[in-house]
Design a protein around this nucleic acid. Sequence first.
DNA 1: GTCTATATTGTGATAGAC
DNA 2: GTCTATCACAATATAGAC
Lengths: 203, 203
Amino acid sequence: MATADKNTEKIILEAAKIVFLEKGFDGSRMQEIADKAGINKALLHYYFRSKEKMFDAIFQEAFQQFIPHVAEIMSSDKSLLKKIELFVETYITMLSEHPHLPIFILHEINRRPEQLVNTIKNFGIQPELLIESIQKEIKKGAIRKIDPRQLIVNMIGLCIFPFAARPIIQRIIFENDDIQFDKFLKARKKEVTDFIINSIRLP
Amino acid sequence: MATADKNTEKIILEAAKIVFLEKGFDGSRMQEIADKAGINKALLHYYFRSKEKMFDAIFQEAFQQFIPHVAEIMSSDKSLLKKIELFVETYITMLSEHPHLPIFILHEINRRPEQLVNTIKNFGIQPELLIESIQKEIKKGAIRKIDPRQLIVNMIGLCIFPFAARPIIQRIIFENDDIQFDKFLKARKKEVTDFIINSIRLP
DNA sequence: GTCTATATTGTGATAGAC
DNA sequence: GTCTATCACAATATAGAC
């Protein structure tokens, strides 16, 4: 694992990320992270002082990835259909590359909401921008009347849920076939886009 | 907590359920469960032998609740609109009463998929029934062409996601206001129903 | 910076009295 | 059935040599 040239801190962070994302804070062991990084436990503490501080570093990075950076997409001058298509496409692609992200973030935030909420605040997420941009579309008469917050939750939920529930869905619907499920995810990009577009078009 | 008349096993199970659902298996402590049940640790082992066996009892019950018992609803002779409305209404109401259920199930299954999948198998969930019933609607020309599996995932995801992501949504969109968020959930029943109906109606 | 050895506390589980 | 006391080991963290 200790791939030659990289500095130790990076190597540790990579190992920690894998373990934390798969097992969560409570289920992770410093020993396992050390093993995966090819070093010993003491070094972990030398670089990060405590398990919690190490976790915080990982969580911060993971959360930033998890929250869709949707402001740019939505504030561009593309058509609404294109915007939504781009959002869904981008988000599902990213999640395919980091499939553990959803349950990790969801579970950890649920464990320590007050504590981790500070981390959130620093990112300056502004849902108002997105909400306004949706409201504009409604006023223009481009889409039907809908609570923008409901729409946002729908869009994000439709993208995230299959990843958070993958072990269940794959086993119950796809008889635990990886390839089948991957096909399902690929098809899902268009499927979700269509689903959203249809649901907000005028009656 | 030890409310007089109930037998000890029930009392333990209730305490265990609260702790496990909030903190997960890895984050839960036998001591905390004992405290909440108003007894001592030794009794937990007297009744359940191990933490794992106790957890299994809780998980089994929780999972049964989590999987929507949708077969009855979908195989009735109500209109499709009514079926979907009933499904969404029932499911969101149940989740409102057990808000920790989604992340708990999602996280635990992700931790030990192989192990917990056996528990699933015993429930004899048959998605084929639901899939067929959707396909019938498509053939009738009642709804547009859509992969039934995608539609099922959409329906369930739209219901579950706000609960799994509640701590984030509530803080980012609702400035951590409980009442606002509850209103949002209440409105969501109609909102999700409309969203689905619109998205599958014929072009 | 990196290691070995060790301190210290936490935690699941059992023994045995009542 | 329920309790107290205790075991055995796991896990975070630190001390100190190199």
